[in-house]
Design a binder for these strands. Structure first.
Lengths: 209, 209
DNA sequence: TTATACACTATTCGATCGTATAGTCGCAAC
DNA sequence: GTTGCGACTATACGATCGAATAGTGTATAA
């Protein structure tokens, strides 16, 4: 039952559409993204997009699921790596660096999250059900483990999770502004190194208190 | 030369349009917002919006300027208040609380900023030129003054500014997610109180180090 | 060889997009 | 009174929106 490169070609074009859609949904949001723009960005016709996903809503859901899957394929590695020897502050530093580098390289899921968080509605509810509830719980566990080993200050773990993820995600979001105002490229490894260093300097001082 | 309530009525409807536009631009971005939707939200006809602002681009610019002006009318009060006695950590706490409360009550400018930051382009450039360059410099001065008085840890002021504003702005942005996942309303005064307390607990410990 | 399924596309639809034009109406100056 | 101006609106334009329909072509199964 060899399919002679037919079905694999179909899947290839399908995921090409998904990735073009992810880019656009992250940049200009759901209503700002047209089926035609997605198709053009993927080098395809609009009708092919509709053939694979039928409705725009379905294209959006499959796009978010695709992006989230890519994120989860990369992040647990970092989280488990950190769980091994989270006692040392160096490991917390490594974790932050890894997350920052990954997010700069794959900013799509963060952008989509912000696009929908600013318009509370059915799509945000969908993301909360599908992804965020579990993800917040996981993040909380990571923070609590780090606290138990003295790697993070012993304060409300939810507040700390918000502050910490905010310090990372916000940097990625305002990177274009930083670049234009200060001339520094926040996605640069040197900047990330310094920024995480500053962050951990604060957190380590607070942990020892 | 009494104008019999004619011109004042015109200005009133004009700013009603501006505020409806601010809401929509912040929620669904530039391309997601239609002239018709703006008009309907303001209880007016589309052609009136075009009469006052002609092009969508011009409506956007005047909307952002309007929102920014409202922000600046409120924030300097807080910043000067903090400059008076920034030596005491309590003052830094008050500043953060004030900013959080104001941002929760007026989230529009933050949302618009994120909408455009995620699509680097001419509109982001315009905002950087018009507002951000000066604003980052002001924020940096506030941080440096606080550092000089020992109210903030003595680290890179730009990194600290990013971390600090990120901790505040990010909270506002993810508030809908927090509410759905944990059931807590982040805009609530009690939550703000605790969150800022946690934040300052970390910063004060790091400042004494 | 015929039939069926699949991947894909051309064409069309009504609605809505941003924009342009030609007006209506009320007041004020002359 | 009529002229002029500013606020506002009705109507229409071409383009594009999301969506539906009716196909074409190819490869596998019978």
């Amino acid at each position: 039952m060899g399919m002679g490169g037919q079905k694999s070609d179909s899947n290839c074009r399908r995921t090409a559409i998904l990735e073009a859609a992810a880019e656009l949904f992250g940049q200009v949001g759901f209503e700002g993204t047209s089926m035609n723009a997605v198709a053009s960005a993927a080098g395809e016709k609009k009708t092919l997009v509709q053939y694979h996903f039928r409705y725009k809503q379905q294209l959006w859901e499959e796009t978010v699921a695709h992006v989230w899957q890519q994120r989860n394929a990369a992040l647990p590695t970092a989280l488990n790596l950190a769980a091994d020897d989270l006692a040392a502050m160096a490991s917390m530093e490594e974790l932050c660096r890894y997350i920052l580098r990954f997010t700069f390289a794959n900013p799509t899921w963060v952008k989509i999250m912000f696009q929908e968080a600013s318009t509370p509605g059915p799509r945000l509810d969908w993301m909360v059900r599908q992804f965020f509830t579990e993800d917040v719980a996981a993040g909380r566990r990571v923070v609590e483990r780090a606290q138990a080993r003295g790697a993070l200050p012993d304060v409300d773990p939810i507040h700390l999770l918000i502050t910490l993820s905010g310090a990372l995600v916000y940097l990625v979001n305002v990177a274009p502004i930083i670049e234009r105002v200060t001339g520094q490229d926040a996605a640069d490894d040197a900047f990330i190194e310094q920024y995480v260093g500053t962050l951990l300097q604060i957190l380590s001082a607070a942990s020892r208190a």
